[in-house]
Amino acid sequence: MADNKTMTTDQRNIMTFDPQAHEIALSTEDLHVFYGNSEAISEGDLQFERYKITALIGPSGSGKSTYLRSLNRMNDRIATVKGKIMYRGLDINSNDIDVYEMRRHIGMVFQRPNPFAKSIYENIAFALRQRGMNKKADLDEIVERSLRQAAMWDQVKDDLNKSALALSGGQQQRLCIARAIAIKPDILLLDEPASALDPVSTSQIEDTLLELKQNYTIIIVTHNMQQASRISDYTAFFNLGKALEYAETGDIFTNPKVDLTNDYISGNFG
């Protein structure tokens, strides 16, 4: 499957894909992220395959979230991002790109559930309406479809006009996922989406993501290694602002090539 495995002397092992065999949805080239003068990401160039789940793991402060948030330029206001982010043959980290349009194709779900202080229905319909979709029938259909995809339609179909803030944490997070997929993005970025949730909600979210992978390219940051091994196809290990190892999930958890990766997944630090 993955070829070109390289082993460097400073112990990095980053896989790259053969473009003939794998469709690459997103990739970064020579990406560097700075907060003021301090460099938060110095080496982190990865390729993400279409319709797969890629997990980014690593200790806190390793830069995995910073990296993820740079991918749809959520960090623009607080950090300086240098280098290329390639999407559909375009460098989306350039001034020519319309950043708002870009985010409609590369969506994001955050660590803390952040539904709007609006009804469940409005949480999903709002962004669509804002882009000119006003037909009630169309909106109804998308709301239902998104909630079904997020596996919560049956629970909330009678309460669509209730405030989203009255939902439980797990339901709120699934609503956020439904809201993100309602605008039909290509790629879904998830920043530790289950870290604030209980185990039951967590496993429901994981099931939802496995379902979604048929239609979406998913990149997920997680501090939960079981989670990464359960749902992801590929895993990248970050430490101190660098991606040190990137491989198929099975390989990285059973046979890591980099010592630090091994230390991390066997619980020796992090």
């Binding site: 020519d96 790109i97 319309d98 950043v99 708002y100 349009e101 194709h105």
Partner: peptide, 8 residues
């Protein structure tokens, strides 16, 4: 992606 969106 290359032209100014309504949002912009």
């Amino acid at each position: 992606l290359l032209k100014k969106s309504i949002a912009t």
